[in-house]
C-alpha cells in the first residue's frame, strides 16, 4: 500500500442556484470525493450533470450551499493560487504574448521579473512551445493555445490542477495528441489533477479514477478505478481492457439516464 496524503476532500457537498422566480435549483447533491496526492481523477457525466459546477466550486468561483471542501486539509473559501485552473475556452489574454500569458500568475503574485522570465522559458519548453513565446494568442492554433493555458496554470506551482474540458473544442487528432502530452506533463510535474470531461474515452485514458456523475441533480454515481498500466501509449485505446472500461462507464450513464426518462 502506497502511503499518500489526501489532496482534495469533498464532504456532503450541495450546490444550489437561485432561480429568477425566487425558487432554487440543486445542481449538485451530496457529493463526496477524495483525491489523493499525485492522482489523476476525471469527472464524467452527461451534459448538465454539474461536473463543471463541482470544479468551479473547488476553484472557488462559487460558494457551496452545504457540506465542505478541503484542500490539503484546509477548507476552501474562495479562489486562490494554490489551485491552477485550466479553462475550457483557453481564455488567454489576447494582448499578452504566449510567454506573457504563462507568467501572468507569477506577475500577479509579485515574483521578480528575472525569475518570471526563467520560469516562463522553462514552461514554454515543457509544453513544447519553445519558439512561440513571443506569439500572440490569435497567432496560435487551438492546441497551442491550450498548451499555453496549461502552462499558465502550472506556472504558479499549484497544489492541485483543475482542468475544465480543456480539449473539448479541439479536433479529434489534436485532442488525442494533447491527452498524450498532458500525461507527459503530469508525470514531469508530479501534479495532482482533477479533470472534467464528457468524453468517456478521454477520461479512461487519462485517469487513475473516473468519477461518474448522474444528471440533475448531480450526484456521484460511482468512482471507477482504472487499472491500466502506465505509461499509456495512445494504442492502449484499442485494447480490450480499455474498451471494457469504456463500455462499463457508458452503461452506467445510459442506465441512469433511462431511469430518469421512465
Amino acid at each position: 500500500m502506497n502511503k499518500t496524503s489526501t489532496k482534495l476532500q469533498s464532504e456532503n457537498v450541495y450546490i444550489t442556484y437561485p432561480l429568477k422566480n425566487g425558487g432554487e435549483v440543486t445542481a449538485v447533491e451530496d457529493f463526496n470525493l477524495t483525491v489523493e496526492e499525485g492522482e489523476f481523477v476525471c469527472i464524467v457525466g452527461p451534459s448538465g450533470c454539474g461536473k463543471s459546477t463541482v470544479l468551479g466550486a473547488v476553484a472557488g468561483f462559487h460558494d457551496i450551499s452545504y457540506g465542505s471542501l478541503y484542500l490539503d486539509g484546509k477548507e476552501i473559501t474562495g479562489a486562490g493560487r494554490d489551485r491552477g485552473v485550466v479553462f475550457q475556452d483557453a481564455s488567454l489574454f489576447p494582448w499578452r504574448t504566449a510567454l506573457g500569458n504563462i507568467i501572468y500568475g507569477l506577475e500577479v503574485a509579485g515574483v521578480p521579473k528575472s525569475e518570471r522570465q526563467k520560469k516562463g522559458d522553462e514552461l514554454l519548453e515543457l509544453v513544447g512551445l519553445n519558439s512561440f513565446g513571443s506569439h500572440y494568442p490569435n497567432q496560435l492554433s487551438g492546441g497551442m493555445q491550450q498548451r499555453v493555458n496549461v502552462a499558465r496554470a502550472l506556472a504558479i506551482e499549484p497544489s492541485l490542477m483543475l482542468l475544465d474540458e480543456p480539449f473539448g473544442a479541439l479536433d479529434a487528432q489534436t485532442r488525442e495528441f494533447m491527452q498524450l502530452e498532458l500525461l507527459r506533463i503530469w508525470k514531469a510535474t508530479k501534479q495532482t489533477i482533477l479533470f472534467v470531461t464528457h468524453d468517456i474515452a478521454e477520461a479512461v485514458y487519462l485517469s487513475d479514477h473516473v468519477v461518474v456523475m448522474t444528471a440533475r441533480p448531480g450526484k456521484l454515481l460511482e468512482k471507477v478505478k482504472i487499472d491500466l498500466p502506465r505509461p499509456r501509449p495512445l494504442e492502449i485505446k484499442r485494447s480490450k481492457e480499455f474498451t471494457e472500461y469504456e463500455k462499463y462507464i457508458w452503461d452506467l450513464i445510459v442506465t441512469e439516464k433511462q431511469k430518469n426518462v421512465v
Binding site: 479562489a79 486562490g80 485552473v85 501572468y104 500577479v108 504558479i156
Partner: peptide, 8 residues
C-alpha cells in the same frame, strides 16, 4: 475569472 483564479 482568469484574474480571479490567479489571485489577482
Amino acid at each position: 475569472r482568469v484574474a480571479k483564479a490567479f489571485g489577482a
